[in-house]
Nucleic acid binder design. Structure first.
Lengths: 159, 159
DNA sequence: AGATACTGTACCGTTTTAGTCCTGTATATG
DNA sequence: CATATACAGGACTAAAACGGTACAGTATCT
């Protein structure tokens, strides 16, 4: 096990879908093309917008898009956006909450080594590594984040 | 999140306790000295015995001990013993079970990169790294697994 | 003004997890 | 040989986390 939430799993599916299409996609659109239920997609997108992975545009013709170049987004960021700080055990976590054995617990904080190791390895896996086709796509296409699309000077091939 | 079971957490506490004391300790003994409830300790020890991390000796004066030199036991092994194969998501896991979106799911098997990365980092963290004192302990003491203790020629200082 | 689409919160059913108990088996000791 | 000790294995129950849904609100374009 040591597994991520189902929500995180779906998030990667949705993000890869977003990676593939237009720069700005509505939640309903992403739900239809990814097969993930709309309420779930909405939940995921909202969560990802709180961090600097996605940006949202409200109103008619609004939607979600990458807040920055997707090549620079790591799996560690995605997982942390959905599940909070990567802490393998509560003891070593952010919150001071420790198990009830604090007195005798000889390893308070020693899970840190594990956390650092895991987080480090996740930081090296990029989001686009999850999408096989992306490796062969035009770099210009991949960098289609909101900023690039909305910039006046940007050449908008498919927008 | 991305957290391990509480059971795995306790397992490390118990294992470190075992690392510190006699080569052969009963479940009740380990429960008393670690503070973890006996039924839980028993569950953990039984699980760890199924792999080649611990060995058990039945009957009076029986108990549990390391099946091999604890220096060579990695956190990846401990976690896998308690939680099964390290698979961050079901899709990439061992069992063929995939999500319901198999048709459209473009990333069947691409979590593998994540799994490999995480497992690799966990394999490099050793169990004794979790126990600060262990680094300063006599290597002979640390290698006190059952085989060494029960070997006729072995000098048994504290057994 | 109205339609579209994101925002935030609160709720409930399901699933997973933690913890406990019971019966069985093996071994050392008196 | 009988008994006490200690592990083996499985089943069961209560609690917590998670996934999914719904609803009321806000912003923006046409």
């Amino acid at each position: 096990m040591l597994r991520v939430n189902k929500l995180t799993d779906y998030a990667v599916v949705v993000l890869c879908d977003l990676l593939r299409g237009q720069a700005l996609r509505s939640a309903a659109d992403l739900s239809a093309s990814s097969g993930v239920p709309l309420p779930t997609v909405a939940k995921i997108l909202k969560q990802l917008t709180k961090t600097d992975i996605l940006q949202s545009v409200r109103g008619v013709n609004g939607g979600y898009g990458f807040a920055r170049a997707p090549q620079n987004i790591s799996m560690a960021e995605v997982i942390e956006a959905l599940e909070g700080p990567i802490a393998v055990t509560g003891c070593a976590g952010d919150s001071g909450e420790c198990c009830e054995l604090t007195d005798q617990c000889p390893m308070s904080g020693h899970w840190t080594a594990v956390n650092v190791a895991v987080r480090g390895s996740l930081a090296e896996v990029r989001l686009i590594d999850m999408l096989p086709e992306a490796r062969f796509m035009d770099p210009d296409d991949l960098s289609s984040n909101i900023a690039a699309r909305h910039a006046p000077a940007a050449q908008q091939a498919q927008a």
